[in-house]
């Protein structure tokens, strides 16, 4: 991906620099509010006691797992159809973040499962689908870096992301189908029938905070990708202009 094809890296860098402090500040604020409300203000659950507070991390993380994958699929479609180079970079920057949220959802789900079910892991339909989603993320990340030419990796990963996105609902359906046949409703559902407003507000604050945090990471990671591409271009220019291979850094 040559630098001259970036719609305008300079403009993106300036925009990113302007947005960074705001997204960062708002993310800290929203997550702070969410944590305070969730850990201290919200009431303990009458059945689950204090352990219900894991929900304020677990549920938004699980939402993010799907949200980020959707973002990757959209970015991949944009990159394949309109060949917009920033979309490629956005997809590349997103997948480790999404994988981390998915992993967080799995770990918190497991931690929550211990007091609830007495074991760390239960083949619950939701946990299982999230696990498969985690594998999809890992495949995306592995394919992205599997080629000598980074551009080929990004394009291949874009196709994979779209294929995966089409498959996510099918996988979800099949796992639900499998679960209902194997474990007929003996598992306690993770979410209660209705949710009390005192529990809803911290949940929403955390969800907004996680999304802002994602945007923050996205901006930083795209910025560093652009800088890296520029460094590589500078390195090549130094290689071709100097008679002997000269050190890139000056």
């Amino acid at each position: 991906m040559p630098l001259h094809r970036f719609a305008n890296p300079g403009r993106f860098m300036r925009l990113a620099d302007r947005l960074l402090p705001w997204t960062g500040g708002l993310a800290v604020l929203a997550i702070g509010i969410g944590l305070v409300l969730g850990l201290f203000v919200a009431p303990p659950d009458y059945q689950q006691g204090e352990s219900v507070r894991i929900m304020y991390v677990h549920v938004p993380a699980a939402w993010m797992a799907l949200f980020v994958y959707t973002c990757i699929a959209v970015a991949s479609a944009v990159s394949l159809i309109w060949r917009h180079p920033l979309a490629d970079l956005a997809a590349k920057a997103s997948s480790p973040v999404g994988a981390a949220f998915t992993f967080l959802a799995l770990v918190t789900g497991s931690l929550w499962g211990k007091p609830m079910w007495g074991t760390w892991w239960v083949w619950d339909a939701r946990l299982t689908s999230v696990l498969v989603l985690f594998f999809l993320y890992l495949g995306h990340m592995a394919l992205m870096t599997a080629f000598e030419d980074p551009a080929r990796g990004r394009k291949a990963a874009a196709v994979l992301a779209l294929v995966g996105f089409v498959n996510v609902p099918i996988i979800k359906f099949s796992v639900d189908w499998w679960n209902t046949l194997h474990q007929p409703s003996s598992v306690l559902r993770l979410d209660g029938p209705s949710i009390h407003p005192d529990m809803l507000w911290p949940l929403l604050a955390m969800a907004v905070g996680f999304k802002l945090y994602y945007v923050l990471l996205l901006l930083i990671r795209i910025k560093s990708e652009l800088i890296e591409a520029r460094l590589r271009a500078l390195g090549r220019a130094a290689m071709t202009s100097a008679p002997a291979p000269a050190p890139v850094a000056q």
């Binding site: 040559p2 630098l3 001259h4 890296p9 860098m13 220019a237």
Partner: peptide, 9 residues
């Protein structure tokens, strides 16, 4: 040109 892809930002 040698500086292809290195336009000023």
């Amino acid at each position: 040109p040698e500086d292809a892809g290195l336009e000023p930002w």
